[in-house]
């Protein structure tokens, strides 16, 4: 991403969304078939469970130039693997606080629970996250340049 492009109108945030196979990915699907509008800024990566997503993966996304990251899984209690999202919840709560402590802007990392029935919710969350990231501008702090 060209660093100066924030100043012209062309810059659009690039957001990587890690969606769990069983709920949020299906939620995204439902948003699509139900024709709910949401910004085209997200690039979806399907993962088996939000519990699969480790901090390594999130940092890798930021390092490779993502302006924001969204991780979404099943609501607590609905996990296909019983408790994957409950472990993930602790992991993300700590990690989000931690990297914001080190100076990553709040809003770069976003987490949510979206079920397979919540197509509309999905569209709203993506809209919210996109606006949040847009307000922050292009990511700079953990982007590797060589």
């Amino acid at each position: 991403m060209d660093k100066t492009s924030v100043h012209n109108k062309e810059w659009e945030p690039k957001i990587i969304a890690f969606l769990c196979n069983w709920c949020s990915y299906a939620g995204a699907d439902l948003a699509g078939v139900s024709r709910f509008q949401y910004p085209p800024n997200i690039r979806i990566i399907r993962v088996p469970c939000s519990g699969r997503v480790s901090p390594n993966i999130l940092l890798d996304a930021l390092k490779s130039g993502a302006d924001g990251v969204l991780v979404s899984g099943c609501h607590p209690g609905d996990c296909h693997y019983i408790s994957g999202n409950l472990f993930a919840r602790r992991r993300f709560a700590l990690f989000k606080r931690f990297i914001e402590f080190l100076g990553i802007e709040p809003g770069r990392l976003n987490f949510s629970w979206i079920s397979a029935a919540e197509g509309e919710q999905f569209a709203k969350v993506v809209t919210e996250v996109t606006e949040r990231v847009r307000a922050l501008g292009p990511a700079r702090r953990l982007v590797k340049e060589i």
Binding site: M1, S64, G65, K144, E145, I146
Partner: peptide, 9 residues
């Protein structure tokens, strides 16, 4: 080898 955003070094 490092490959970052289309650049190899």
């Amino acid at each position: 080898d490092e490959v970052v955003k289309g650049t190899i070094r």
